[in-house]
C-alpha cells in the first residue's frame, strides 16, 4: 500500500519574503516548512483565509516563484530547466477570475488553438478542432458555441468552463485550481464543482483545490490541509478534519461558515486579527494571539506536527509532554 506512486510530493517547502528598506528589514515567512503529497486520482484541498500563503504554495509548484528551501518532486523527481513543456503538460492551472483570464479583445477560441500549437497536440487544423470540440464537450460546451465569440459574450460560469477545457487539452494528470469558484455565482457554482468531481472520477485526474470555502471543499475533496500564516495547522481526510476539527483554528473556520439554515444563526462573537504581518512575525504558535485556549508555551515555542487519530495537528493542546 505504501508503494502507491506519489504524484506530487512537497517536502519542507519554505518561502521567505522581505519587507521594508535595508534599515528596517523584516523577514516574513510566507510558507513555513510545508509538506504534503498528492496521490493520483484525488482532490486535495488547501484551505485558509486570505494571506495564509496558499496561493504562494501554488505559485511555487507551478514554478512562478523560486522556493527559498525545500523540494517539489513531480513524479518522483525534480523537473530540470529544459523540461518545462513536459512539466506543464502534466500540470495545468485554472485561475480565480474568469473575466481576467481572457483578453476581452481576443476571441476565446484563439486561446484553445494556441495551447494546441504550443504543445504540438495536433497535426492540422481539422485535428485541432476535433480535439478542442472533444474537450469542450467534456465540460458541457461545444466548438460551435465557442468559436468566433469574444469573452464578453459568455457568462462567468461559461468562461470558467472554457478555461477548464483549455487546461484539459494537454491531458494533464493534475489540475491546480486557485479559488476557481469564488468569482462565479452561487447558483452556477455547483456546476463547476460537480465538473471537478467528474474529472476526478472519469479521467482519473488529481485536483489541487485552493479555496477558503470549506463547504465546497467538504463536498468534493478527499484530503484537506488547513493553512494559517504559512503553516499547515491540520491535515487529514476531509471527513475527520471538518466534521471533528481538532485544532482551535479549524474550529474557528468551521464555525465561521454561514450555514444555509436560518435556525443555525451564529451566537457569540469571535476575535479577529487586525494586522496581518504581526501574526506572521509572532514567535511560537502563530495563532496564539486569537486562540481561545492559549497557554504559556504557545507564545514561546512553535508546536510540532503530531498525529492524532490519523490527522496531522500542530497544536500544543495535543502534545502530551
Amino acid at each position: 500500500m505504501q508503494k502507491m506512486q506519489l504524484f506530487l510530493e512537497i517536502k519542507n517547502l519554505t518561502k521567505e519574503f522581505f519587507l521594508g528598506s535595508i534599515i528596517s528589514r523584516q523577514k516574513i515567512t510566507a510558507v513555513d516548512n510545508v509538506s504534503f503529497n498528492i496521490k493520483p486520482t484525488e482532490i486535495f484541498t488547501l484551505a485558509g483565509e486570505s494571506g495564509c500563503g496558499k496561493t504562494t504554495v501554488a505559485r511555487m509548484i507551478l514554478g512562478f516563484e523560486e522556493p527559498t528551501s525545500g523540494a517539489i518532486l513531480y513524479k518522483g523527481r525534480r523537473p530540470k530547466k529544459g523540461e518545462k513543456v513536459w512539466f506543464t503538460q502534466g500540470m495545468q492551472t485554472i485561475f480565480q477570475n474568469p473575466f481576467e483570464t481572457f483578453n476581452p479583445l481576443r476571441k476565446v477560441d484563439c486561446y484553445l488553438f494556441e495551447t494546441v500549437q504550443n504543445y504540438k497536440l495536433a497535426r492540422d487544423n481539422k485535428e485541432a478542432q476535433e480535439l478542442i470540440d472533444r474537450k469542450l464537450k467534456s465540460v458541457g460546451l461545444s466548438f460551435e458555441e465557442v468559436s468566433g465569440r469574444y469573452p464578453s459574450e459568455f457568462s462567468g460560469g461559461q468562461l470558467q468552463r472554457i478555461s477548464i477545457a483549455r487546461s484539459l487539452l494537454t491531458a494533464p494528470s493534475l489540475l491546480i485550481a486557485d479559488e476557481p469558484v469564488s468569482m462565479v455565482d452561487a447558483s452556477i457554482r455547483m456546476s463547476i464543482v460537480n465538473l471537478f468531481k467528474n474529472l476526478e472520477e472519469e479521467l482519473s485526474m488529481s485536483v489541487l483545490y485552493i479555496t477558503h470555502d470549506l463547504a465546497t471543499a467538504y463536498y468534493m475533496s478527499g484530503q484537506i490541509a488547513i493553512m494559517f500564516r504559512g503553516n499547515i495547522m491540520e491535515m487529514g481526510p476531509v471527513e475527520k478534519v471538518l466534521m471533528n476539527p481538532k485544532h482551535p483554528y479549524t474550529k474557528l473556520l468551521r464555525e465561521s461558515i454561514p450555514e444555509v439554515d436560518p435556525s443555525k444563526k451564529w451566537r457569540g462573537e469571535i476575535a479577529f486579527s487586525n494586522i496581518e504581518h504581526e501574526e506572521y512575525l509572532r514567535e511560537g504558535c502563530k495563532f496564539a494571539g486569537r486562540c481561545p485556549r492559549t497557554m504559556d508555551i504557545c507564545k514561546r515555542e512553535a508546536p510540532k506536527a503530531i498525529y492524532v487519530d490519523g490527522v496531522l495537528v500542530k497544536c500544543h493542546l495535543y502534545c502530551s509532554d
Binding site: 460560469g157 447558483s187 460537480n194 466534521m243 444555509v260
Partner: peptide
Amino acid sequence: KYLINSLPKFGDTGSRESVPGNP
C-alpha cells in the same frame, strides 16, 4: 428551490445540482 438546494451542506455529500442553463 434550486438556489437553496444547490448549496453544499456539512455532513451531507449527496450530489447537488445547480440551476440548469444560464441567467
